[in-house]
Simulated scan of single mutants.
Amino acid sequence: MTAAAGATEPQDEVAPVRAGEELDWTTLAAHLRANVDDLDGEFSVLQFPKGSANLTYRVSFGDRRLVVRRPPFGKIAPGAHDMGREYKVLSRLHERYDRAPRALLHCADDSVIGAEFLVSEYRDGIVVWDSLPGSMAHLPNAGERIGLAVIDGLADLHAVDPASCGLSDLGRPDGYLERQVRGWSSRWDAVAGHAPSAETAKIVQEVGARIRASVPTSQRAGIVHNDYKVDNCQFTPGNPDRVTSVFDWDMATTGDVLVDLGTLLNYWPDRTVDPGSDAAFIAVPGMHGLDLPSRAEVVERYAAGSSLDLSSIAWYEAFGCWKTVVILQQLYARFVRGETSDERMGQRGDLVEPLARRALGLLPG
């Protein structure tokens, strides 16, 4: 039984487990052998190193590979990192949406590895981060094709009837936006004391006030991923035209589907805006090199397959920015409190204010 299986593999997909993020591998292996069929061979584990919140590991039993996900260490925001919710979604959604990896097990017993956790199937493929993968870089218009595939994957998700795969009880669509706004306001309040500066806190609070003052009327309810973005999508090497898997479903629900489009726009670089303006700032600056379609093209592509009125999409984009601001602040607060040894989290505070300024520019005063 080993806790690492050598050097980082191509694409830096997996790596040896970070110091301080080891689990009780013996107990985990025994639990999986007892509860998941056909696990033979030597146990080994590597970590998916690029995620920022949930701890995600690739465990192997001989040639059989699985994914194990658990919440991060330390204090968890209410309703966040819900492994039971993710299991519910992924154990059913794959029947109607083949981009959803199938969940195999949910363990709510904290005594196994110190927290509840989820086990799902492992899928081979590549995730696009801050540069074009080598298998796609030589293809014509690769960045544009990747972007359009990501948008199409979102539209296809929103076309799924939750009742068709047993998810009609996943959430409460009535009053969804109002509850979301209240919930994210509370999350900010819980970590505002660790804001990088008083000015940063003031700007974020102003964004929240404007968000609350201009909530639009929801048009249609469907399955909402709640963190849909390019680097939560997987592709087959050499094929930028279709997303094959979508990851990170722990915040999924049923509600106003335009929240997902706003979240996607929040992360999306725009080659048509002044690079020095607030409107250009995104939380993953390296994505500018992907040469994705503009945000206007994102909205146009989504609208082509939708009957929804997108005239209020700026509010949804601002809401997406604000949510990301809160998440960045949560990650930074965990670092400040000494709950993670991941030095990347200590840098998240630098992103809070510029992203909040972008959100402010999208909202009426």
Rank of each mutant, 00 (worst) to 15 (best):
F61P: 02
F61N: 07
F61S: 00
F61D: 08
G62H: 10
G62T: 09
G62K: 11
G62C: 07
G62S: 07
D63Q: 06
D63A: 13
R64V: 06
R64Y: 02
R64C: 00
R64F: 03
R64T: 11
R65K: 03
R65V: 03
L66H: 14
L66F: 03
L66S: 13
L66R: 14
L66Q: 12
L66Y: 09
V67H: 10
V67K: 11
V67Q: 09
V67C: 08
V68D: 02
V68T: 06
V68M: 07
V68N: 00
V68P: 03
R69Y: 04
R69K: 15
R69I: 07
R69D: 01
R69S: 04
R70A: 05
R70N: 01
R70C: 09
R70H: 03
P71H: 13
P71V: 14
P71I: 14
P71W: 13
P71Y: 13
P72L: 09
P72G: 11
P72K: 12
P72C: 13
F73T: 14
F73L: 08
F73S: 13
G74H: 05
G74L: 10
G74C: 01
G74P: 04
K75T: 15
K75N: 14
K75P: 06
K75D: 15
K75L: 12
I76Q: 15
I76D: 06
I76K: 14
I76T: 14
A77M: 15
P78N: 02
P78H: 10
P78M: 07
G79T: 11
G79V: 10
G79P: 10
G79D: 03
G79H: 09
A80L: 12
A80Y: 13
H81C: 15
H81E: 15
H81V: 15
H81A: 13
H81G: 13
D82L: 08
D82T: 09
D82N: 11
M83S: 02
M83N: 10
M83E: 04
G84P: 11
G84C: 13
G84F: 11
G84T: 08
G84Q: 12
R85G: 07
R85L: 07
R85I: 07
R85P: 10
E86M: 01
Y87I: 03
Y87V: 01
Y87P: 05
Y87M: 01
K88S: 09
K88C: 02
V89Q: 05
V89A: 06
L90R: 00
L90T: 05
S91N: 09
S91Y: 06
S91V: 04
S91T: 00
L93W: 05
L93H: 02
H94F: 15
H94W: 14
H94Q: 11
H94K: 00
E95G: 00
E95C: 04
E95R: 01
E95K: 07
R96A: 12
R96Y: 01
R96H: 01
R96I: 00
R96V: 05
R96C: 10
Y97Q: 01
Y97G: 06
Y97E: 04
Y97D: 02
Y97I: 00
Y97V: 00
D98R: 13
D98I: 03
D98M: 02
D98A: 12
D98V: 08
R99N: 09
R99Q: 15
A100Y: 11
A100T: 03
A100W: 07
A100N: 07
